[in-house]
Computed example of a mutant assay.
Amino acid sequence: MSANSNRSLLRFTEAMNLVYGTFDHLSPDAAARWTAPDKPGAGGHRGRYLWTDAFGVINFITLSKETSSPIYLTLAKRLVHTVHGVLGYTRDGTARLPGATDAEPLAGGLRIGKLAAHGADGDGQYHHYLTLWMFALNRLAVATGEDGYSRLAVQLAKAVHPHFVVRGYGEGGEEEEAVRMVWKLSTDMDTVLVPSEGHLDAATGYVVYRVLQRTVEHMGSPRGLLGGEIADYRRLMSRGGKLRASRDPLDLGMGLWMCHFFRDEDWARELGGQSLEMARTMLGEKRGLMARDASRRLAFREFGTCLGLQCYGAQEETRRGVEAVVNFWNRYIEESIDEDLRPISLVMYAAALIPGAWQDEYLGPG
């Protein structure tokens, strides 16, 4: 391993330690008993925040591969167990979310983990957080060979899809094709809290559900378990103007990340090409992000760009831009970032350093 690789791995581990406590010297027995801390934790309700912990799970898988240590897979499993035990339950922790059972613990979805129960930035369920968690479960299934995680991902996928995809009805009462998606639901998924449609929600669903289906079939389940859902997302993302490169650094990066799974398909080639052009502007040395003061930037959103570019594949100019962003935030990552945003920034910083298990080929075919 090169000096640069060693340095990146050290920074990666330090960032994860700051979120999940010191874990890199745990014995196998201690790792099997480990519980993800609520302080500092992932920064959400009772220490759990779904987006941050999804990155945490995938980063633990990366650590396992980079170090050849199975302990980190144990920690990934334990983090999944903790998340399901907090965000799969009502906020008071007394009952599973409506629709979930002991046999189907994710049939009620998963809460975001917002600190507030209600209000404009209150708790609920986001489609883009849920698909990220499905992907984390999928990566854990591939890394461990345990199909239970794959089946949990499919269970969650099938449970939330009909609540986020809004269908119309014809005059005769016949169901028409899916017409749109909604962005945010209540924790019980009975009420639409934000009726607008996320820019990449349909495309993310299309990509992640295909990855889930590929893995579950590889592990012996019947073909086409998610065929109807995938068809819905395909129709939704194919509407005119729905797929375009974003000027938002996080959206830009996550779009590139999605494209790298199916880069030979027309939609991915087009979106990927547009996004690379946008990234060149965004990461230019004398303009874009690097021309701004730290107080006018959000680290975690920029790390999304870095992650997406490394997964998709960047040209030399853009690779230098990725290095510049990561090096810039090295100076601020522990102290100057807002405390509420520190956990999400740290896990995404780690992923920007070593994308690892975020890359489709990293763990082999799933």
Rank of each mutant, 00 (worst) to 15 (best):
N4Y: 12
L26D: 13
L26T: 08
P28K: 03
R33I: 00
K39T: 13
F55N: 02
G56A: 08
I61C: 06
I61L: 08
R78W: 08
V80L: 02
T82S: 09
G88N: 02
D92S: 01
T94V: 06
T94C: 10
A103V: 06
A107L: 12
I112M: 01
K114H: 07
D123P: 02
H127F: 14
L130K: 04
W133I: 03
A141M: 08
G148T: 12
Y149D: 08
R151K: 12
L152W: 02
A157S: 13
K158I: 14
F164I: 04
R167P: 01
G172H: 05
E175I: 02
V182M: 05
W183N: 14
D188M: 00
S196M: 04
D201Q: 02
T204P: 11
G205R: 01
T215A: 12
P222C: 05
R223S: 15
G240N: 14
K242D: 15
L243T: 02
R244I: 06
L250P: 12
G255W: 00
L256W: 00
M258N: 07
G273L: 00
L276H: 02
T281Q: 15
R287A: 15
G288L: 07
E302V: 04
F303S: 04
E316V: 12
T318Y: 10
V325K: 06
N327G: 15
R331V: 11
A352H: 11
P355V: 03
W358V: 09
W358K: 10
